[in-house]
Design a protein around this nucleic acid. Sequence first.
DNA 1: CTTCCGATCTTCT
DNA 2: GAAGATCGGAAGC
Length: 234
Amino acid sequence: MGTTDPLPRDFYDRPVLEVAPDLIGRVVRHTSPEGPVAVRLTEVEAYAGERDPGSHAFRGRTPRNAVMFGPAGHVYVYFTYGMHWCMNLVCGPPGQASAVLVRAGEVVEGEDLARVRRATARSARELARGPARLTVALGVGRQYDGADATDAASSLVVLPGDGPRPGPDRLRRGPRVGVAGEGAAAPWRFWLDGEPTVSAYRPAVSRRRPDPSSGRLDPTGRPAGPDQRGATSP
DNA sequence: CTTCCGATCTTCT
DNA sequence: GAAGATCGGAAGC
């Protein structure tokens, strides 16, 4: 029964930069009345709590991020851009507020249901390629904010995953997607090299139109670059 | 394939 | 009042 038990609290109760790469290859599984959908993780990002300018917890506890300050192994779900839900797994001891954003994966169970939920996906690899797409594929929303992913009785759990752990030769790390400011350069995004489900790299964008009176000097400050820009081996 | 841009609304300043 | 841990469609190569 080993592989059906969720990863235990101890797994998450470590420094977030240890937990994040260890989550690659693990399986997030949600069982709804419609059936189960499971995703094998290929891409995650670490957010290091109050010391991380890129983290929702950087300016301390608020109603939204309260779950991040709680026990490890619980799920932090937030709403963003007026329409998307994203899910994290809380790490470290209570009070530390670190978490891992679940960014992308491969649907390994319930693909038919995932395709119904992700009707705009034109291929299997797009079903959970991106943090908001992944929550749609799984059927996860606000109702799971604060849920305990280590509870075997929960309908949302993280399982160890089948087979051997991915080799370190395939693990990559680089800057996080869409993170602006001081935290932009930290190489705290982890992914599995060669996986088609890894989401495209996007630097943070400013939505402000350029000021017409200030010329045309790269108003967004946005460098161009390929998906795995800044990648290094561990 | 890539780049550009609008949608949409909660959250915190 | 502005920004945001994004996505999908349209247009360009």
